[in-house]
Design a protein around this nucleic acid. Sequence first.
DNA 1: GGTAAATCTTTTTTT
DNA 2: AAGATTTACC
Length: 791
Amino acid sequence: MTNTIAMPSSETKPMPNLNDAQQRAIYHTQGPMLVLAGAGSGKTRVLTHKIAHLISQGVDPSQILAVTFTNKAAKEMSHRVETLLGKGQDAGLWIGTFHSICSRILRREIGKYQGDSGRNWKNNFVIYDESDSMTAMKEAIKALELDDKLYNPKNIRYHVSNLKNQMISAFQYASKAVDFRAEKLARIYDTYETILYRNNALDFDDLLKKTVELLQQNPDVRDRYHRQFTHILVDEFQDTNDAQYEMVRLIVEGCTKQERMQLNFNTLWQNRTFTVVGDVDQSIYSWRGANFKICLNFQHDYPDSQMIKLEHNYRSAKNILQVANAIIENNSERLPKELISVKPDGEKVTCYEAKDDRDEAFYIIERFQKLVQTGKYRPGDCCILYRTNSQSRVFEDILMSKGLSYTVVGGIKFYERREIKDVLAYLNIVFNDQDAFSVKRVLNVPKRGIGKTTVEKLETYANQNGISLYQALKQVDQIPDISGKTPKAIGGFVSVIENLKAHVENTSLHEFIIYTLEETGYLNELKMEDPLDNDGRIQNVEEFVSVARNYLLDNPEGDLAGFLTQMSLLSDIDNAEPAENKFVLMTMHAAKGLEFDVVAVAGLEEGLFPHSRSLSDKTQMEEERRLMYVGVTRARDHLFLTYSRRRLVFGEFRYGMPSRFLKEAPQELFTGNYTLDQEERYGGGSFDDDYRGGGYKRKIYGQRESGYTSSRFEEDEPPVSRIRPKRSTEVLKVPPPNLFPVGTRVQHVKFGQGTVEQVIGEGEKAVYNVKFDTIPGRKLLDPKFAKLEAI
DNA sequence: GGTAAATCTTTTTTT
DNA sequence: AAGATTTACC
């Protein structure tokens, strides 16, 4: 980093190493501004310098609100501001994700929030993650005695989440319900809300929605934050959703949407900064409610806003950037822009066709090793990117077998592990004993002899008497049906919790967690279960204690509330320690905002990337393409793009065609063994015969021969697909292999037209998973029996 | 109420 | 193929 520059004392003395557009973005501090910042254009630098500039101009840090996309980005940004200004100079700055900023506001103000049907949360609310929210949704559907086949909890949760992101309440949704199903949905939504309310819990979407409603309902609260935050900056603006935008708008303008008409923007913008930074081409979270049209509409919402484009890319070699530019040009919904690379051409982009997923992993890892051997790169500079988390497995297997160390970012998150959730459940109960989910989770962990039927009786009693589950536990003696040893066991649990409650005040956080682990007998049970800690559970629990200790070191004022909040909102990427001796693996979503010298994008196959769920929808396909753009633009020096002819999914081989994204790039920028042309691929001959080696290509091929022998022979002739073993001996007309590759449009006599989403099994035994346009769900069809025609 | 066996489900991306 | 969840039996 070249950030050893002193801050200028006035606006007339520009900072060195910043280009003209960057400087204009930094020094414009009056009024709204949209910064369209392409990948690698120094967006983070602009934001940090702008914050530092504001503070150096006398703005109190507590007047600045900076919103980032991840907690890690927040941490990094405040660190960089400190580097620019000196330690502690940024004290009081509000910086964090929308979710963490909203929790901070709600912890203070939720008492003033008026929920529907008089539901008023208390400030010791707990935050439910996706799985808790899922449990609540299942409970809601069950409570209404609805069939969870017809009302799929996952589906409905997704639907409710979307409604919340659009600020639509159950009540509002019910009033507009047009059919029977919508009415039921509204009922489920409302029941779900009731369950969360009874547990004094909020889900992720509530953090945003309830903050917005709080600000709408209370002019005094709104005005307080409006006065405080005179300088607001939002990063990754293209991934903002409606609720988030409305929250920012409420604080920036200090008025409701209705009052907005009378607002005098001329006076509003005096000494007020509102800067949003984004790149429409990198909008990859629409499935989470993000709406990049907010970005496109910004100038319409704020006609007096300034707009600045950062179009110089300081990150990627020219060849890499050209590939990215060529691919993204295939999107129609975008603001035209061409990123200009300031770096040399660099090497050609390598495109590799692997025999299978293992071959692909071997190839990438060996190429990475070669680059590390040159001494120019460390393993930590090399990153493997993929579409789905499940793809990490093959890479991990092979890295492990080679004895190489690696970090997987994402996937199973630390705090989603069973033992961590158990400990967190105890802490949650101490903090908020209304949280019935946590009570249920650990009531019998460690085993206390309290079973399912007992829990059901307790719940019934609690519901009948309008008390919380924990209150019911306390009154167990008055519940007629529970007898024998059970009341004593329950009493034991209650006294453990009461004992913990008595200790929480005067014990430091990590000591309290250790106390909890011992007092509850949880640690003992772990030790009994697995004395050698083969599963690493004890280690994870110990790690958790360290997490708490670190939290206290970072936040000297921190308490249980703050710790629990942070634990709920922390994502895996936030914890990812940059270790220079470890290869990095992650999804392209997780890679947003990061950069690496060496990058491989793996699994470039139709149906995987672009994902099968996006094949038939133009909007979704464009989002996949933006994701590809994000992946490619992570690379500084070297880029590998790979795909496999077949891959093991759910224990079956699946066949795919090379991703369309590869074909969208100018082929003269590629090198490698690829064959993207379908006619050539199926014109006859095996893959190996088909190989047309040139100098460089042959070298790769040679490596492959020597390096991947074991994988080639072990897997070359896989056991016959098990999908249709019974009929396989019958003499039938055999369709050629991959008659209908993934993505093919097909016609069926009965079902009409559809798209092939998967090919399961090999050649003649292949069956095709087809999504028909008019029928919900997918149909598994065998062309030997079903009349299928490509159209 | 607890265990072992059988069966179902998973893989889109995440605050 | 692996994990989670449900069921069957003690």
